[in-house]
């Protein structure tokens, strides 16, 4: 299992899967995402089952504001693109490009999270507390879990960026960045369903 790296040839075109360790990380993370899918499905199902149970509290069409959600969606979609661009930079051994695009991703993610906190704050002051109704609990749990994923992703990517601020692209950190970007895309995938199922269906469905 001795991974011998030929340094003279240059960075392989798929640095994230150039070592066995990288291949393992790559596959293991996809397996994890498969599990995440069905975990989120459970929360989506819970929300769909309980969304009409407002128990005299505010209903979804009372409180949701589409413009805010639209801005949040655009920010998160764009952050998905920037992490794709970071991966392109990584494959070309462009370390500076990787760093810049990843930092942009982190900034976009942070602004998304900020807007989400603001949104929850607004809803709370409108009268939708966590314990107001089954609808409220399932809404905050589903969207909050997504927010927690964003938060975790931000912490993760920031840790990587600081740890490897001047390390260059190596066969050890390339899989780490690649996996983190997969995670970030997955957060975006979940958000696509949240804005559709929770917000759009809540307002107009």
């Amino acid at each position: 299992m001795a991974d011998s790296v030929d340094m003279t040839k240059g960075l392989p075109s798929h640095p994230e899967r150039a070592t066995l360790d990288g291949k393992n990380k790559f596959l293991g993370f996809w397996v994890f995402l498969g599990g995440e899918t069905i975990m989120f499905a459970t929360f989506f199902g819970t929300y769909l089952g309980l969304m009409s149970g407002t128990a005299d509290g505010p209903t979804s069409s009372d409180i949701f504001s589409l413009p805010l959600v639209f801005i949040m969606t655009m920010i998160l979609l764009t952050s998905s693109l920037t992490s794709v661009l970071a991966m392109f930079a990584m494959k070309k051994n462009n370390f500076k490009g990787l760093m810049v695009w990843m930092w942009v991703t982190v900034l976009l993610g942070a602004s998304f999270l900020g807007l989400e906190i603001y949104e929850f704050y607004e809803y709370y002051h409108y009268g939708l507390g966590y314990t107001t109704s089954a609808f409220a609990s399932s809404f905050y749990t589903l969207v909050g879990l997504h927010g927690a994923h964003v938060l975790f992703g931000l912490g993760w990517i920031t840790t990587l960026l600081i740890r490897y601020r001047s390390a260059g692209i190596t066969l050890t950190n390339a899989p780490k960045f690649y996996v983190a970007s997969l995670y970030w895309h997955f957060i975006d995938v979940i958000w696509v369903f949240i804005f559709t199922v929770v917000y759009l269906m809540g307002v107009g469905g």
Partner: peptide, 15 residues
């Protein structure tokens, strides 16, 4: 071996 895994590359091997 292990040491090289933490070393950055001079260039890309891409054709």
């Amino acid at each position: 071996m292990g040491e090289n895994l933490s070393q950055p590359f001079e260039k890309s091997a891409m054709s």
